[in-house]
């Protein structure tokens, strides 16, 4: 089901207050189970996550209890 990125890059999550009109935005319920688990683990543990096996790409804003922009670490 999930599309996966093949890189082993690290990503970070940065909390943002606003979203640019040209941003790609995803609601947390659009993440597959594995990405969701990594996403929440990253919020708990300093906002770092590995891109491998998730379908998150830099630049995407994820809407959770706050808005988080995915950035390359």
């Amino acid at each position: 089901m999930a599309t996966t990125t093949s890189t082993g890059r690290s990503l970070t999550l940065r909390r943002v207050d606003s979203v640019a009109p040209d941003a790609t935005v995803r609601h947390i319920d659009q993440l597959d189970d594995r990405t969701l688990e990594r996403f929440y683990a990253a919020l708990e543990g300093g906002c770092q996550l590995t891109a491998t096996g998730t379908d998150l790409v830099p630049g995407t804003v994820v809407v959770a209890t706050d808005y988080y922009r995915v950035e390359a670490a």
């Binding site: 979203v19 935005v25 808005y67």
Partner: peptide, 16 residues
């Protein structure tokens, strides 16, 4: 599932 964020005044239309 993002239109509520627009209604809240937090998200512009385009990314929806």
């Amino acid at each position: 599932i993002l239109i509520k964020e627009h209604a809240k005044g937090k998200l512009p239309e385009a990314p929806i």
